[in-house]
Design a protein around this nucleic acid. Structure first.
Length: 720
RNA sequence: GGGCGAUUAGCUCAGUUGGUAGAGCAACCCGUUUACACCGGGAAGGUCAGAGGUUCGAGUCCUCUAUCGCCCACCA
């Protein structure tokens, strides 16, 4: 047989990858409907569905994204070849706060601030940026070989998703699960918005603990790390059993503190630890979560002394209108000069900072929208209960299993979720106000109704993702169950598996379980497969400052998507971080070349061989085929259990060290009918088995095979 | 303050339900064998962090310790 000219040189991935992807895309087989239409999959086949965790439209993809694409595409291609009705649905995430702050930073470079532009014009800029990012992301997904059904692409902020968000909000509001309330929030003074508890990152820092008396007339000292907040104190709390303070409980004291008149009542509260500090806590309801709760229990007044910019609103010269850090120094100085300061000592403390901006969180009282996670709803169960039950009962399985414990622990400590944000990019809260009345509506109710200025936490819309992506835009229904059921793609819900990083188990996985279970009475997915972080060779996080970033685009250019995919999959179990190195990528680039060259040899020497005519086989050849079949049984089972990391390695080993080193070496000595059959059989089977892992090179070699069961390898049958 | 993970060959890591320790890379020796030098053959390399326990048998199960890492947490 005349060998294809392309085999004359080694494997050069960039020559083939683009065209192959185009061929796949044009075939339409990424779309399960086309697979059914063309008879590749039967109409009543079992479904396998998975949504792509939508990348944020904040820029380009990194190796973490590449790893998720590699893992998911391998799962998807395997399922498709196994004959499942397979859907992998793509999309991107508007990522509200992340995208907005990115654009703000870009504008800053040109000396433009968002308020100079106004809401509408600023949003136009954000949308343009989002569109550009989207285009880059989509082309990168293609470069990885992702067999995503682009005909179903969704965006968390598009029309259909907007309707879904509105409906979710409305339903939860009507059920009393979404409410608006004035209470302590995590305020980000830099981002000028509230954030949820999960977006607060704790940082260990050194701090000073000051022990002092409010005034010379005050009977005992208190201790705090934030003296400047004491201008807003309305009480002092002590433990009810603390003999040192028992006699003072119920008494009231007034004094001037750093230029502000302060009145405090001594209250007894169990929350105070008599062992800590001096056992007396100055209560600042407006600027501390704990104190707010104490204030609620004792019906204390709330006095705000710090504003949204992190500046003092009251106090003497040098305190008022000054940022809190500076004000703190001024207050300490004042205490010292008044002779009130008794002790200062350095302590370790954990400070809450904002995930996006890094600013120190300023707790402030604000009117915000919340989701109640404790309110009993269905059969007396709260959202918390729903979330716990589906995992506890085994309806949802988390891999690796140990993350189930992490998940339970998080839910048990979960507090109400603050869902409103004071930013512009995102789903506008569908609440309208007029004369103290509130109406929930997607469009203006007319008249003098004024819409809430805020937008929703980005995770609110991504929480709906497994089913909001499957809804028909034309068939809007007032009930998600009906809407989903009547939709063309409703059959793909619940999805089969959710594959995502363990770092967003709370942000996203838990929120999807919450929203979906409540809104649709269905679980969002049966299995959660959590991958780890991609790090550098030494196990460090990749970062610009370390200069250790591996860009997937560069790797694909140099070594091919197949090599990158293998380097991101083999040996990396769920939950494990991947220390990616150039050596590792190089190893799989060499493997691709090995496959290429071995295939050339086989193709050159199998003239007249047809797999449907099985010749009399030599014993050793029979044994090789048996060995392969045993391996197929093993890896098929492992693929079904999502143990891709084992299968990739086993296929690598078999191809190189059994097939190439042993079988080919033996067969080349005597190229008889038995040899030729064995070579062709094993090559054909291995191309199939390797295809989910290394789709490009296997498809390219497949083209040169004659007598195959399918024109395209991607829709051929998985070996058995 | 809780919880979790890691500790296996020089490096990066596998090791499924307990049954004689594995891979890749690196290093060493040999080989220009017409698929492949992005190669082949060969040899070397480990008291599986430490201590104790269960067992006929432990890298694997239990307890404790050490080092590193991660997550969670309203002690002001």
């Amino acid at each position: 047989m005349a060998i294809d000219e392309k085999f004359l040189s080694g494997y050069e991935p960039h020559k083939y990858e683009g065209d192959i992807y185009k061929t796949w895309e044009e075939s339409g087989f990424f779309n399960p409907d086309v697979c059914i239409e063309k008879g590749v999959v039967s109409e009543d086949a079992e479904k396998f569905s998975i949504v792509l965790p939508p990348p944020n439209v904040t820029g380009t993809l990194h190796t973490g994204h590449a790893s998720m694409l590699a893992i998911q595409d391998t799962m998807v291609r395997f399922a498709r070849m196994k004959g499942f009705k397979t859907l992998w649905l793509p999309g991107t995430d508007h990522a509200a706060i992340a995208t907005q702050s990115k654009v703000e930073k870009l504008l800053e470079k040109d000396g433009i601030r968002k308020h100079d532009l106004g809401r509408e014009e600023f949003l136009k800029r954000v949308e343009q940026f989002a569109q550009d990012s989207h285009d880059t992301i989509v082309s990168q997904c293609r470069a990885m070989g992702s067999s995503l059904d682009w005909s179903r692409e969704a965006y968390t902020l598009d029309k259909t998703r907007h309707k879904a968000v509105f409906l979710a909000f409305k339903k939860m509001y009507e059920d009393g699960l979404i409410y608006r309330k004035h209470r302590i929030v995590n305020w980000d003074p830099k981002g000028q918005t509230t954030i949820s508890d999960d977006e607060v990152v704790r940082e260990d820092r050194k701090g000073m603990m000051y022990t002092f008396k409010y005034s010379h007339d005050f009977p005992f000292p208190i201790a705090t790390t934030r003296p400047e907040t004491k201008l807003g104190d309305t009480a002092v709390a002590v433990h009810p059993e603390d003999s040192r303070y028992k006699d003072y409980i119920g008494k009231e004291y007034s004094f001037n503190f750093a230029g502000e008149d302060v009145t405090v009542r001594i209250v007894a509260d169990e929350a105070v630890d008599p062992e800590f500090g001096v056992g007396a806590l100055g209560v600042t309801p407006a600027h501390s979560q704990t104190d707010w709760e104490i204030a609620e229990r004792h019906n204390l007044p709330v006095k705000q002394v710090i504003n949204e910019y992190g500046k003092m609103m009251v106090g003497m010269e040098g305190v008022r209108d000054v940022k809190v850090e500076q004000a703190r120094k001024a207050v300490v100085e004042w205490l010292r000069s008044e002779g009130l300061l008794m002790e200062e000592k350095e302590i370790d403390q954990s400070v809450g900072t904002a995930e996006r901006t890094g600013a120190v969180i300023e707790p402030l009282p604000k009117m915000q929208w919340w989701i109640d996670v404790n309110k009993p709803i269905k059969d007396g169960k709260s959202l918390k209960n729903l979330m716990l039950d589906v995992v506890r009962d085994g309806n949802i399985e988390i891999l690796p299993e140990r993350f189930e414990k992490v998940y339970f622990h998080w839910i048990e400590n979960l507090r109400d979720w603050n869902i409103s944000r004071q930013i512009w990019y995102g789903h506008r809260i569908p609440a309208w106000y007029k004369e103290g009345e509130t109406q929930i509506s997607i469009t203006s109710p007319g008249g003098n109704w004024i819409q809430d200025e805020d937008t929703l936490d980005t995770w609110f819309s991504s929480g709906l993702w497994t089913f909001s992506t499957l809804l028909d835009p034309e068939k809007y229904e007032e009930d998600f169950k009906v809407w989903l059921k009547n939709s063309r793609d409703g059959i793909y819900h619940p999805t089969t598996v959710l594959e995502t990083g363990y770092d967003i188990i709370f942000f996203w996985v838990a929120r999807m379980i919450l929203m979906t279970t409540y809104l649709t009475d269905e679980i969002p997915f049966k299995t959660v497969y959590l991958h780890g972080l991609v790090r550098d060779k030494q196990g460090r996080k990749m970062s610009k400052s370390l200069g250790n970033i591996i860009d997937p685009v560069d790797v694909i250019k140099d070594s091919g998507a197949d090599a990158l995919r293998m380097a991101l999959i083999v040996g990396i179990g769920p939950g494990a971080d991947n220390n990616l190195s150039d050596d590792k990528i190089k190893a799989y680039r060499k493997f691709a070349n090995k496959i290429w060259n071995a295939s050339r040899f086989v193709l050159e020497n199998i003239e007249g061989t047809n797999l449907s005519d099985i010749p009399e086989l030599q014993d050793s050849h029979k044994a090789y085929i048996e060995e392969w079949k045993t391996l197929v049984q093993e890896i098929t089972k492992e693929m079904e259990e999502y143990k891709l990391y084992l299968v990739g390695e086993k296929l690598y080993h078999f191809f190189w060290h059994r097939f190439a080193d042993v079988v080919i070496e033996e067969c080349k000595k005597d190229l008889n009918e038995s040899s030729k059959y064995t070579l062709l059989f094993l090559l054909t089977e291995q191309l199939k088995a390797l295809h989910p892992f290394m789709p490009f090179i296997t498809e390219e070699i497949w083209k040169s095979l004659e007598n195959k069961d399918s024109e395209l390898l991607m829709v051929s049958k998985w070996p058995n």
